[in-house]
Amino acid sequence: MPLIEFRNVNKWFGDFHVLKNINESVEKGEVLVICGPSGSGKSTLVRCINRLEDINQGEILINGRTITGKDQNLNELRAEIGIVFQQFNLYPHLSVLRNITLAPVKVKKISKEEAEKTALRLLDRVGIGNQAHKYPIELSGGQQQRVAIARALAMKPQIMLFDEPTSALDPEMINEVLSVMKDLAREGMTMLCVTHEMGFAREVADRIIFMDHGEILERGTPTHFFTSPEHERTKAFLREIL
C-alpha cells in the first residue's frame, strides 16, 4: 500500500484548471521530486496533501485512508505532515527555539523541557545548534530555512513537503539547505520536493515527475528523466534549465 495516493484529483481556481486528473502514488521512504515551469500546478499538488488547498474532485489517501473528506480533522492531519515553504515563514516575534517548540508543546502537548531538548538536537542536526536563542531576523536566509526544516521535523512527521525551499536563497546558501535535505532523504524520510535544483533531483530523487498546465507529463527515475525523456515539453524544459 502506498503511503500517499492521488486518485483522479482535479482542482480549479475559478475557471483555471490547476490540477488535471492527477493519479500518482508515493511509497514510504520515497523521495519524489516535482518539477515543471511556474504555474504548472506543482506547488498546489503538494499543498493538497496537508489540505492547505482543497481539491474539487477525486481523492487523496494517506496510508489507505482518505484525507480529502469533509469530516477529516485538519489539525491531526497536519501534525503528521511537515512543510517547508519558499519564504521560510518563521515567526519573527519568537526565538529560534520557540519557533521550533511551539507546535510540539501546543499541539502534541509535549512538555516544554522535552520539546526544547528535541529542538536543540534538531538544530544540531541542521548545523546551527548555537543559534537557538537568536531571533529569525538575526540569521541568514540559509540558516532561517534550516530552522524551518527543524520546525517541521520537531513534529516527527511521516511526510515532509518542500515547496521550492531554495528558490528564495542566495546561491551560496542553497547548498547548506540541500545538504540537510539530502541527509533527511538518506535517513529514509518520505519527501515530496518541488524544486528547480536538478543536481539535487539527479542525486537524491527516487523518482521525478514533470508537470505542465496541471498535468503530469513525464514520470520516471532520474536516469530516465535526464537521459531519455519521452515528452517534447520535458525535453524543452530540460534544455532551458540545464
Binding site: R78, I81, I83, Y91, L102, V107, R151, A152, M155
Partner: peptide
C-alpha cells in the same frame, strides 16, 4: 498558513 500547517 505556516502555523496552521503545523497543526495549530
Amino acid at each position: 498558513e505556516a502555523s496552521r500547517a503545523t497543526g495549530l
